[in-house]
């Protein structure tokens, strides 16, 4: 990696000529001694927030682990009924958006406003693409009566479409597919909610980036948002095989 990861250091923060002895960059809050201290505090704080996110999703992942082992057959059939191609495309879209976000952080670090805006915009577009495909999937599930609740229907699992090699489930086991779909909607729903919040913040960042504050040394907001966005990506990296690919062969 030594060739690729050329480690460099950020440019010196801009210094306002106004103050006398205590010269601070414009973005430094009064209660920090140095800009560096502020940056590290902010980044550490973001990591702690992601820690709470790990535990928030952790509860759902544990529920998944439990029921997948209890009702494996139901989970296989239910998993095979969701559209794997859409899931795969979404994975690629989301990893792509993670890449553009990483590039946006880099653009801010090297103080290139034009590139920063391009990459932020690309991330927004990819985020919307993900949500669009996701809502397509949700629509299919809704049409198939696979949404848990009063209108849930197990017909597709007890009597699979002729021509597919899908195994027919007993009524008892087919009822357990509702657990899968509960978890599917809870996990992807909470994930999508994080995406929506993320896109809203991204648009805000895009708006404020016009003034150039993020490209004059104040990288912190972009960097921290990047951490959040990559975390959302990681959650999906786990959700994709767990929900779409339980037993496809």
């Amino acid at each position: 990696m030594s060739l690729a990861s050329t480690i460099t250091h950020p440019p010196e923060p801009e210094i306002h000529a106004s103050h006398d002895v205590h010269e601070h960059p414009f973005y430094q809050k009064h209660h920090f001694e140095t800009a560096e201290q502020q940056r590290e505090a902010a980044s550490f704080g973001m990591w702690l927030f992601l820690l709470t996110e790990i535990m928030f999703f952790g509860g759902l992942f544990f529920a998944y682990l439990l029921y997948r082992n209890w009702y494996y057959d139901a989970f296989v059939s239910a998993s095979n009924s969701i559209n794997m191609v859409m899931g795969l495309v979404n994975t690629i879209v989301l990893i792509g958006s993670s890449f553009t976000m990483a590039m946006a952080v880099w653009s801010a670090e090297v103080r290139n406003k034009k590139l920063l805006q391009i990459f932020l915009l690309a991330t927004v577009v990819l985020g919307f693409a993900f949500l669009g495909i996701k809502s397509g999937e949700y629509y299919d599930k809704f049409a198939e009566h696979h949404v848990p609740g009063a209108s849930f229907d197990i017909h597709d699992f007890v009597h699979p479409q002729p021509g597919t090699d899908e195994k027919a489930l007993s009524v008892d086991m087919a009822n357990k597919t509702q657990i899968f779909f509960s978890l599917y909607f809870a996990m992807t729903g909470v994930h999508a909610l994080h995406m929506i919040i993320g896109i809203a913040i991204l648009i805000g960042l895009l708006w404020y980036s016009r003034s150039g504050i993020y490209t004059e040394g104040y990288v912190q907001p972009i960097e921290n948002f990047g951490l959040y966005w990559h975390f959302v990506d990681i959650v999906w990296i786990f959700l994709f095989p767990l929900l779409y690919l339980i037993n496809r062969h």
């Binding site: 029921y67 209890w70 009822n175 357990k176 657990i179 509960s182």
Partner: peptide, 9 residues
Amino acid sequence: IGVFDPTKG
């Protein structure tokens, strides 16, 4: 949704 509901498993 049925994550804690015994009747749904």
